[in-house]
Amino acid sequence: MTIAPCVFYQKQIIRGKDQFYALLSSSWQNMELINTTTLSNTSSVDLDHCDLRCRRILIALYSVVLLGGTAGTVMMSRMMFKRKSQSMIATIIVNIIVLHSILLVTLPFRLSYYVSVVWKFGSFTCRVVSSIIYGHMYFTFVFYVVIVILRLLIYFKKLQMQRLQRYHAVVLSITVWMVGSLIFLPVFFLKYGIDPSHSEQHRCFEFYKDLNCRELIIINYSIIVFMMTIVVVLFLIKMAVIFQLAKTHWPDTWAHQEYRAQIKSLFFLLVIVVCFIPHHVFRIHFIQNFSEIEDSQLVLYNEICIALTTVCCLDMLCFIRGVIH
């Protein structure tokens, strides 16, 4: 009679242990599942962002542009102030200096973000800083093209520099600023960065996610085709003019002022090709291949191409060194 209860209690204890181990095993599996899910979510988020290598490259590139661009802009401004030139080309150069100065002011914000990996200045400031780098690129492109076209018009006797007054350059500058602002600002501020996810977790410069919008894809392709067409046409005309001048004035080609002027204005096209074209060429590949689940390589290269557009701020150092007069 006394043995039966003992056996009964032993079975209950064993059964309780089995239930405890089963519950412990279940809890452990749930924890592993949660950890796996968390890691996968974290990795999927991190894939869309600039990694450590990307940030180091961008910090180095923006630092060089900030230091070199600031030095070149300050020294060029002093030279322009001393000379007090009234020419149309000089007025356009002043516009480029203003554009470079606006961009250089925003670079410390970018450097702060890439160093700390936290955007501390609000979503509106992020959109402003991000828009300035694109506005700088397109406005600078327009003024570069204007200089090249002016030189070509002078060569083909369609325009005489002596007839150009300072007010012509001022009117041209105001027109470029007004028309460019009316086209650029609505597109960027009404289409880019309107997704609430951009303001989450204090991040910035991730507006490439808006490229899923069909309207933005069309706008990007239109800009790319427009820029590429202008650059190719001007480059072919410029090379034909230079070749004709070299053939006509050989062997004392460099002694002729018109030849030197065409060579020096070619500098602006070369800046466009080196600084702006890589971004737009890669943009085609980026739009066609980017998705939320891909690795960060496309984002890395896209950010580097965008940063490369700011290198044109170093053009003022070339002015000072006498490449362009």
Rank of each mutant, 00 (worst) to 15 (best):
Ile3Arg: 10
Pro5Val: 01
Val7Glu: 13
Gln10Asp: 09
Asp18Thr: 12
Leu23Ile: 08
Ser26Gly: 14
Ile34Ser: 14
Thr36Trp: 09
Ser44Met: 11
Asp46Ser: 09
Leu47Phe: 10
Leu47Asp: 11
Arg56Lys: 03
Ile57Trp: 12
Leu58Asn: 02
Ile59Asn: 07
Ala60Met: 12
Tyr62Ala: 09
Ser63Cys: 08
Val74Glu: 07
Met75Ile: 15
Arg78Leu: 12
Met88Pro: 03
Thr91Leu: 13
Ile92Val: 15
Ile96Glu: 09
Leu104Cys: 12
Leu107Arg: 09
Phe109Asn: 05
Arg110Asn: 11
Tyr113Ile: 11
Phe121His: 14
Phe121Ser: 08
Phe124Leu: 13
Ser130Met: 08
Ser131Val: 03
Tyr134Pro: 00
His136Phe: 15
Phe139Arg: 00
Val142Met: 09
Arg151Ile: 02
Leu152Val: 08
Ile154Trp: 06
Ile154Asp: 03
Tyr155Gly: 02
Tyr155Met: 04
Met161Glu: 12
Met161Tyr: 02
Arg166Gln: 10
Ala169His: 00
Val170Lys: 14
Ser173Arg: 05
Ser173Trp: 02
Thr175Met: 14
Val179Asn: 11
Ile183Arg: 02
Ile183Asn: 07
Phe184Ala: 08
Leu185Cys: 10
Leu185Met: 12
Phe188Ala: 01
Phe189Trp: 12
Phe189Ala: 05
Leu190Val: 07
Tyr192Ala: 03
Asp195Asn: 15
Asp195Leu: 07
His202Thr: 11
Arg203Thr: 13
Phe205Leu: 14
Glu206Pro: 00
Phe207Tyr: 15
Phe207Cys: 06
Tyr208Glu: 11
Lys209Cys: 03
Leu211Tyr: 07
Arg214Gln: 09
Ile223Cys: 05
Ile223Leu: 06
Val225Ala: 09
Ile230Phe: 10
Val231Asn: 02
Val233Lys: 05
Leu236Trp: 03
Ala240Thr: 04
Val241Arg: 01
Val241Lys: 02
Leu245Trp: 02
Ala246Ile: 06
Thr253Met: 05
Glu258Gln: 08
Lys264Ile: 04
Ser265Val: 10
Ser265Leu: 01
Leu270Val: 15
Val273Lys: 00
Cys275Thr: 14
His280Ala: 04
Arg283Ile: 00
Arg283Trp: 05
Asn289His: 15
Ser291Gly: 04
Glu292Cys: 00
Ile293Val: 10
Ile293Met: 06
Ile304Trp: 05
Cys305Asp: 05
Ala307Gln: 08
Ala307Lys: 04
Thr309Gln: 11
Cys312Ala: 09
Met316Trp: 06
Val323Arg: 04
